[in-house]
Every structure is written in structure tokens, then in C-alpha cells.
Design a protein around this nucleic acid. Structure first.
Lengths: 252, 252
DNA sequence: ACATTCAACTGGTCCAACCAGTTGACCAGT
DNA sequence: ACTGGTCAACTGGTTGGACCAGTTGAATGT
């Protein structure tokens, strides 16, 4: 009995999903240039040997992601995703097998955005969250400290803890953006190898931030949150080589 | 010949789109509670008198928006959108006819997020944008000042100008989030009535921010951007009554 | 009481049409 | 030669029915 088998490697991906990923990748990589016309649905269906409905479902998703523009009678045209695609692109892109070259630094960017949003959320949370929420955040921080050195468990608890803070900020847009980021770019431990450990293992910083929020010290909470979240962000834009061996040399 | 007819009020909305909006609204409003099962595709098709394929396209979009969870053989279940939906929800929600009650304060939240992201983008842009980009931003700010008092034109130019700054920040996540926000919550003039005019009409502030960015003064650019963008954000959370007549009495 | 089986669901895919707009070439009238 | 309208050949949108492929839960046999 496979109890904790969270991922099923056997499961076949739906045809429309495969087609979506394929077309998405081609668009993001510029193989299908903006302004150009997408291959007709019937032709795509014939090319890949699938039914037209599967193609339609994929195209419909591309449309929702603002990667293409569909008009009845006319051809479906490829949009400039840099000017139209939304933040959920982070989510879909990381879900794919491999990240398109065009989205190379996106993970770093997502971490940077996390720091920005997280810091402001902490500030707002300290300002206007309810006492009950503050207590919950404090309690969660305390529980966080009792987990141990398991990075995976820490990562999951950390996300849950931040969700409380972002929720406490009362800003729904922050919460949705948070979902986009954690659902995509920084799932448990699979993204930042070493730097994020500095963040996750620092229980004291978590407890201190919780105290600041509970105390209503908005400015200090913002500063503490920014400092904590900035640790995982690779400071200089330096990731030219695809070799994963980089980052060994201590940053000066 | 209708030249400048940008919107066509005649166009019929696709069946799957209507169904998507309807189901989305029901989910966001809690009519379809999280954890519960969505009506079966065949049943939905029968209920609304449409083909099952149209239903499938709608459900597929709900799945992409992380509002439902689909599993072959099993029933499609409704997710807790507060915990799973991404920022693009802003975009879709505002596209609908009426905003669901659950997303009442979302517009204000989006403005708050815009201020947060925009300020950090201005900071990063001042730090690391190229001289060519800085020149383009400066030129665009100058052109912005020559538009005149047309709020609609100013709004469009303002968005284009900010797009330059966000692009100059080099952060792709910021750019995508920007797309989500401007594509949804704050399209030209239809959202913030009076407060945003203070922002749009202040040409001097735009020029000054452009100068700070060009000069590479990151800290000052961040402060200027935050100040400029914060004007449109209704400061206190005060929107309890659904009546739109509120806000007349000056906040004490 | 338990484990097994199986019929009745569920979503996933396919085929074959037809409806509804768009496009562009083609041809009649000027 | 140019203008104008017509029409065939695309495009996406919708429909119907059928079947495949998993899941579920109740009926069945031990």
C-alpha cells in the first residue's frame, strides 16, 4: 500500500495539457512570434493526430493565459506575452518539464517579488490584523520552531505561516499573488538550494517577526520581514552558465 | 465606416465563456463551497442546454484558474480559491459583468499592490536599467506632459510609461504582475474616480521620477514612486455598506 | 464480517457533421 | 482601369453521439 506517495509518475498527461504546454513553450521561446498566426485548429489536430476538441481546449487555455488572441472566423494570433501575460505564467511555466530560456531568471525574480510583497504584507498585518490572527501567527511561529531540521517540512510550514501573515494583511491581491508565487516558483525546497536554508533554519527570526506583528510595530515588522525574505534572493544577476555547480564560491 | 469603434457591444459571448463566468462567480461567492463536488459535466450540459464540449472548455478554464480540481473517473471538486487561485483572478473577475461580493475590496487591494510593486520596480530600475532605457523613460515622461487634461489618454500613457519602468527593473515577475493588475483592476479611468486624477495630472512628479531613475538614485526613486502611486489608494479600510454613497463624510 | 466483484457513475477522447463569422479572389458594372 | 458586390474557401464555435478509461460504492460471495 503506497500511503505517502504524493506524486504518481505513471499518470498520463491529458492530450490537451500536453498540447498546451507545447504551444506555450513555443510561444514563450519565440518560435511562434507575436503577431503571427497560430496554426489552424484543424491543422494542429491533424499534425498531432489528436481530435480537434483537444486542440480547442489547449487553445482556450492559451487564450485565458493571454498568450493568444482568438476571433471567430479570423485566425488565432499570438500575443506578446511580455505585454499581456499575467503572473500565473510563473505557475504554469514551472509546472512544465523544462523552463523556457525566456523565463530563465524568473525564479530569482519571483523570490525578489516575494520579499517585496512579504515585507509589505508583514507591515500591513502588524497594522491591521485582528488579535486572534496575531495570536495564530505567534502560535504558528512557535510550532515552526519545534519542527526540527527537516527542510521539506520547514518549507511547508514556512509557506503556511506566511499565508497567515498575508491573510492578516487583509489584502486579497497580495494573497492571490502569494498563491501564484508559492504554487509555482518556490515549492518545497526544490528551488533554492543553500540560501533558503538560512531563512528556514532561522527560527529566532520567525519568532521575532511574529512578536513584532503581534505588537503592532509595523515599521519594524516590515524591516524584519524584508531582511528574512531577502536572504534567498541571489543579489547580483549572475547566472550565465547553465552548470548547476555555480554558487560554491562564497559571494564577496 | 466606423473607424474608432473600439468596443463592439453586439458581439455574442461564447457559450463556454458564459458558463465559465457563471461557475466562477458561484465558486467565488461560496454558492459552490470548497471541498464540494461540482455538478457532473453531462448534467451541467443538460441543465444549461448546451453541448458537453462547451462545458468541458469552461471546466478546463476553471481548472487552470485553480478554482476546481479535476480527476478522471472521480468528480470535479471545488477548491478553496483563497488558498489556490492566482493573481490573474483579478483580471477575470473584473472582466465579468459584476464583481462578486467576495472580491469587493479587491480594487483597493490591487492599487495597494501596485504601489508596492511600482515603488520597488522604480528602485530596481534606477539601480540596473540601461542608459537607453533610462533615456526612453525620460522621453516618455516628457511626452506624458504634453498630452493635456484628457484623463483617458493620460491613463493609457501612464500605464505605458510604468511598463517601461517595470521592464527596466529587469524583474519578469514584476512585469507579469503588472500585466495582471493593469489588465484587470485599473483599466483607463474606470476604476478610481477622483484620487487617481491627482496622480495622472501631476506631470511634475512624473518628470521628477524619471530624472531620479536616470540619475540612478534608487532610494529617492523608490520614495517618489511610492508617494505618487499611493495617492490613488483609499487609506482606511472603510467600505462596509454596499451603498456607493459612502465616503462623503470626511474621515475623522 | 470481510474481501471481492461489478455495474454505474465520473471525466477523457474521438468522429462527423454543421453553424457562424472572416477573408480574399473573382467578376460585373461603371 | 477602377470600383463595387458576390461568393467560395477558409477560420473558429457548436452540436450529437459514441466509446475509452479511470473511480466509486453497493451488491455479492465467501
Amino acid at each position: 500500500m503506497l500511503t505517502a506517495m504524493t506524486e504518481r509518475t505513471i499518470q498520463r498527461e491529458a492530450v490537451s495539457d500536453q498540447l498546451f504546454s507545447l504551444l506555450e513553450e513555443r510561444i514563450l521561446n519565440g518560435v511562434l512570434p507575436p503577431g503571427g498566426a497560430l496554426t489552424a485548429e484543424r491543422e494542429l489536430a491533424a499534425e498531432f493526430g489528436v481530435n480537434r476538441h483537444a486542440v480547442r481546449e489547449a487553445v482556450k487555455r492559451l487564450q485565458q493565459a493571454r498568450l493568444v488572441e482568438v476571433s471567430q472566423g479570423g485566425r488565432t494570433r499570438v500575443l506578446d506575452w511580455r505585454a499581456s501575460a499575467g503572473l500565473d505564467l510563473v505557475l504554469q511555466a514551472s509546472a512544465g518539464s523544462r523552463v523556457p530560456p525566456a523565463l530563465a531568471g524568473l525564479q530569482r525574480d519571483a523570490l525578489e517579488m516575494r520579499a517585496c510583497i512579504g515585507a509589505d504584507a508583514a507591515r500591513l498585518c502588524a497594522e491591521r490584523c485582528s488579535p486572534a490572527q496575531a495570536a495564530e501567527i505567534t502560535a504558528a511561529a512557535a510550532a515552526f520552531g519545534r519542527i526540527g531540521p527537516d527542510l521539506a517540512a520547514l518549507g511547508a510550514a514556512d509557506i503556511a505561516w506566511w499565508r497567515l501573515i498575508v491573510t492578516g494583511s487583509g489584502n486579497l491581491a497580495y494573497l492571490l499573488a502569494f498563491n501564484s508565487l508559492v504554487g509555482g516558483a518556490l515549492p518545497v525546497g526544490e528551488v533554492p538550494p543553500a540560501h533558503r536554508a538560512d531563512e528556514l533554519l532561522d527560527v529566532t527570526a520567525h519568532l521575532r517577526l511574529a512578536e513584532l506583528i503581534a505588537a503592532g510595530d509595523a515599521a519594524a515588522a516590515e524591516r524584519a520581514a524584508r531582511e528574512l525574505l531577502s536572504r534567498a534572493v541571489p543579489s547580483p544577476a549572475a547566472e550565465p552558465a547553465p552548470s548547476a555547480a555555480a554558487g560554491r564560491e562564497a559571494a564577496g
